[in-house]
Amino acid sequence: MSTSSQLGLLVRPSRVRGLCSRYFYIYTRSGFRVLDIVFWPVMDLVVWGFVAKYFMRLDTTTSATAAAASATAGGASAGGAITFLIGAIIFFNILYRAQQSISVSFLEDLWSRNLLNIFVAPITVAEFVAATYVVGIAQIAVVSTLMSVLAYFLYTFNILTLSFALIPLFLNLLVMGWSLGMMTTALVFRFGHQAEALAWAVPFLIQPVSAVFYPVSVLPTWLQPVAYLVPATYVFEGMRHVLAGQGEINRYLLIASALNVLYFVLVSFFFGGMLNNARERGALAKLVV
């Protein structure tokens, strides 16, 4: 136990359950908190879904618009582009929630001046992070289910069309979100309160090069290599591939998984390094006291 405890890698289910219980207490009481989690993704889905429907209507009446829409969708029809857009909104929410579950949980403890109580409790860093993973998964399950049901009734978009590809696509976005969350928190260790805004900014910073709403081919040539370094790119390209009925996406999944494993390991070291660095500089004490 000593070695894993020293490295902060020990994970005891009872302690993770303890950390999760406080989120349970918060969410079962605070309607506003639940609303905050559900409101924005549902609004995104509703607004962009209807915008897409509007484009679809233009497509049926204006051939020129249809051609343009087809071109921007990488050769897909306007109807197909709408399906892609709805799928992308639901999938991007998975990435965003996974990232937020780590970075915002940490910031909430910081703002409520509770972080010191957590740091001096007999829990490891891995247990703290594991609890945020569990809470993130629960949030994503609830919000994604709600969005999928809404998408089905409002736009006849059936997420189950993705069939078995749904699980690996979901897992890849989850792991990438966790990596981003740990990276954001590590940057708060390094730069202090001034880096807090990154908790909300980071997912949107990588969104343009993640092929979320459009294929990589739409990007300028010089930017495309950057997009191919992002695991989410392969997830969203794979999602469009399946929705367009173009068959197997094993290659996409393999590359996304390999990149995710690589980044997760690198970010874990970065997180541990920044935590130790904050201890040496006294920055951790300034942050939590």
Partner: peptide, 10 residues
């Protein structure tokens, strides 16, 4: 510590 609090919303 007087300068550390428990989460206010619990």
């Amino acid at each position: 510590s007087a300068y550390v609090a428990l989460p206010y919303n619990l």
